[in-house]
Design a protein around this nucleic acid. Sequence first.
DNA 1: GCCACCGGTGGC
DNA 2: GCCACCGGTGGC
Length: 361
Amino acid sequence: MSMEVRCYGCCRHELSSGLKTILSIGLFPDCGYLRSSEDISANLYPVETRVLDLSRCNHLDKSPQQPVDVVTPQEEEDHSAAEDEDNQSGEDDSQKQLVVYDPAANGTSTGEDSQPLSFPKKKSIPFHSSKVLPSVGAFTVQCAECFKWRLIPTKEKYEEIREHLLEKPFVCETAREWRPEISCEDPPDICQDGSRLWAIDKPNIAQPPPGWQRLLRIRGEGGTRFADVYYVAPSGKRLRSMVEIQKYLLEHTEYVDAGVSISQFSFQIPRPLQQNYVRKRPTPPADVNPLSWAGPDENTALRLGLPGFSEAPDSEILDISAKKKARQGSSKHVFSSDSVYNQHGVELEEPYQTRNGAFEL
DNA sequence: GCCACCGGTGGC
DNA sequence: GCCACCGGTGGC
């Protein structure tokens, strides 16, 4: 079996054979593509079922490292087309107008909040800068027909598209609202070039109620979770869970009277496409027999001296083991594979990560 | 003292 | 493994 497939990571084509993975999408920072069936599960939203040999794209490894392009709020006002000195592929400017928001450059870490995020003038910063949290640099949605990524000019527009993504797939023509001439024939606005961190957002998240803000805060690499979502009420009150939202609405019925409902809130976070961005939860030793810690028997006495057994308090180990056992058999939620999804990505600045995923401290 | 950020944990 | 919730805490 042999067919031409498009490499969505670097926007090139290549001939592939031995295809094995069903589904499309997945733009990985290192062009590693989808790694396993788990990556294709609920947390990635296929634009369309398509056969790709995801192991065969090494384009990024052959490409020079590109500097990170930065747009500051002041520069955002200037929408003049930026010349791309590094344009080596003959593609037009739009493909190179990458948008990254540098929180350090403008004195705030809330890059996501600054808008619009489009057509920046450019300046380069060292790829490995001081440790700052990643911030959302660009909102981008993949066309359901040509699979090219289109930059969305504002967070609000992005949220509007995201809200109805499943029933109203995004296509390039949708972008004519802000780019009258755009079509699937045009080069992609942005490509997965390895210089940025990518995350795949969840579809059909309701827009925040008028006057409310939904904030996404990306955590640093190696943390226990990828990001946090906060809602900021018109009063400025910051709410960080559905429980807090519910409580707040009960205490401020004026919002409910104005039509605000709990269904307009979602704390779902995107998923990083970079493997191991989030630290894995420690797993208990594989061969621990919980019974051996319940009391002194010969099994305990013998096994305590073996490698892999720690001197940790019995109760702690017992808890972990019991917890794992209790969780065995739980099913994983997987999106229907025959549904056609669009995919929308949140592109994130990757301020201190090296290409191979290691930190430079 | 406030709050943004992070980690821990329980539930699924 | 993912998600939701919330307590802790360091920096301001």
